[in-house]
């Protein structure tokens, strides 16, 4: 173990980790928004939009992120659309994550029994009020475990960003492995960096899940 190598190069990892977290967070937030919109169009069975959503979901779920990214980064410029590595990463992650989020959120909505909505209706609540007081809080609690699994899944998927030249953690690790023979040190820092990013979020998600479960069910 070469400690000087580690002390020399860890700032590179910090910078890359920040990039991973920032692009990942933006992508995940956008995924949740896209997912919510898609879930609503499917829950309310809005014509046309719903068909588009279904086609999008299938395309997104049945292709690998790396292939989506290659198409965005290397393919699209040939059609005149040039995107930066960061933009590609975020768009790709959103394209992938939107469908996963949509499935989770939709099944949250669908978990609410019809009788719940009917009893809210018979109390005289309007559609908007039913959504706000009955459907949303219940759906959020029901969808939470799946949504947090998605968040962690998407965070891990950001590791593919290096394929489109985004200087993320994988990129730095590969660079250092290529340049020096300090493979063990480079990989160790890579693992630690990912642990620092993913572990707290994974713990936070399980705490949140437990709290939500206590409130309802």
């Amino acid at each position: 173990m070469d400690l000087t190598f580690i002390t020399q190069h860890y700032p590179l990892y910090v910078k890359a980790a920040v990039l991973t977290v920032v692009t990942g967070t933006i992508g995940i937030v956008l995924s949740a928004i896209v997912g919510l919109i898609c879930a609503l169009t499917r829950y309310y069975k809005i014509p046309v939009l719903r068909t588009i959503t279904v086609i999008y979901t299938e395309l997104s779920r049945n292709t690998p992120l790396i292939v989506q990214l290659f198409f965005l980064y290397f393919g699209l410029p040939k059609a005149g659309i040039v995107l930066s590595s960061e933009a590609c990463g975020i768009i790709g992650l959103t394209f992938l994550g939107g469908s996963y989020m949509s499935e989770s959120i939709l099944s949250g909505f669908q978990s609410i029994k019809k009788a719940q909505i009917e009893s809210a209706e018979s109390l005289g609540l309007t559609r908007g009020q039913i959504m706000r007081y009955v459907v949303f809080p219940r759906a959020a609690a029901a969808a939470m475990p799946a949504v947090s699994a998605n968040i962690i899944f998407l965070l891990k998927e950001t590791s593919v960003f290096s394929a489109v030249a985004l200087a993320d953690l994988m990129y730095i690790a590969k660079d250092l492995i290529g340049m020096y023979s300090s493979t063990t040190e480079s990989l160790l820092m890579l693992v630690i960096a990912y642990l620092i990013i993913i572990l707290p979020i994974s713990l936070l998600c399980s705490v949140l899940e437990r709290r939500l479960r206590r409130g309802g069910a």
Binding site: Q116, L123, G124, L125
Partner: peptide, 29 residues
């Protein structure tokens, strides 16, 4: 929705909203 405020209904499956306390359930409408 206006008319329904004059008609109360209780169902077989006592559909209280599970995420609210009893008081919150009752006070919602």
């Amino acid at each position: 929705t206006k008319i329904r405020q004059h008609i109360g209904m209780v169902f077989q499956s006592y559909d209280l909203f599970p995420h609210m306390t009893i008081a919150q359930n009752i006070a919602l409408a």
